[in-house]
Design a protein around this nucleic acid. Structure first.
Ligand SMILES: [Zn+2]
Ligand SMILES: [Zn+2]
Ligand SMILES: [Zn+2]
Ligand SMILES: [Zn+2]
Lengths: 143, 143
DNA sequence: TCCGGGATGTTATAATATCACGCTCTCGGT
DNA sequence: ACCGAGAGCGTGATATTATAACATCCCGGA
């Protein structure tokens, strides 16, 4: 991600939060920036390390609170199978997305509108879905 | 799960392992039994507690090694979003399954043959999929 | 018998995540 | 201006989940 598009994404995120009546505070913005800068899923404690050079603080609750906020706002997704986090460029309020994660290069593609549950049990009402596909992206196969 | 069907499941699991040229040792069998007995996803450290009255030991590696074996054999699945484990009654060697997990009663239904990825990125080759749906089962909705 | 590898036991530690408490803002109401 | 409520955050401690590293046991084949 280029510096320009990063700045744009952060501005868009700020606007998105304001629409929701919430504040993208400096800590939250910095965490989002770190997640977006990363070229793949990023671990909470790596974010913690990256925050440390900052103004003194940086303890686990700081980063987990920021991540919780960002996930609720739809700006970040958790990759459950990796205990890691990825930025979301779609800013969709519902938490659901399909993630395609390349095991070789770490690149993550996001898709929406899963049509799936043809084979849900009768009467089962889905509230939240976790869909994560691991494999190789086109680049890593041919490269 | 009744005692009878539990015994049958364990016998079937033993046969399944033998077909694969592997051994369902006492520790592994006991862990599988505990997972199958549970009425929902079960945590590794709960298994650990349950093992302790048993033959002496029970340290984390014991249960994690047993769970790794059982997952590879297709006898147990990990619910990634819960860091918990469920028994599998299908004994399918491929790791993939769709799990429908009731957030109220903990019941887990498993489905296979997901046709999904209509919307995978071009050229992406899926090696492993995690599909977990959380919500309410029919019983808990009407109850 | 002797060796070799799989399985297990054992000790320690790493990695991930949350709790509990208190401080400081800011914002409205008075 | 004063107060009180609530959000955000700092801080220390702790809970939860998982693995590393090495020793030991056991069983089957040479
Ligand atoms: Zn998204
Ligand atoms: Zn790739
Ligand atoms: Zn299964
Ligand atoms: Zn239910």
């Amino acid at each position: 991600m280029t510096t320009d598009s990063l700045i744009k994404a952060l501005d868009a995120a700020e606007a998105h939060c304001l629409e929701r009546g919430e504040k993208l505070t400096p800590v939250r913005k910095r965490v989002l920036e770190l997640v977006l800068e990363a070229d793949g899923p990023v671990k909470a404690y790596d974010l913690l390390e990256a925050l440390k050079p900052g103004p003194g603080s940086a303890k686990p609750p700081t980063v987990y609170r920021a991540l919780d906020f960002l996930m609720t706002a739809g700006l970040v997704h958790k990759v459950e199978a990796l205990n890691a986090f990825v930025g979301c460029s779609h800013a969709h309020d519902d938490g659901g997305a399909e993630l395609y994660i390349c095991s070789d290069c770490g690149n993550v593609e996001e898709r929406h509108g899963a049509p799936l549950p043809m084979n849900a049990p009768a009467g089962f009402v889905i509230q939240r879905s976790v869909v994560e596909h691991f494999g190789q992206c086109a680049n890593c196969r041919t490269g």
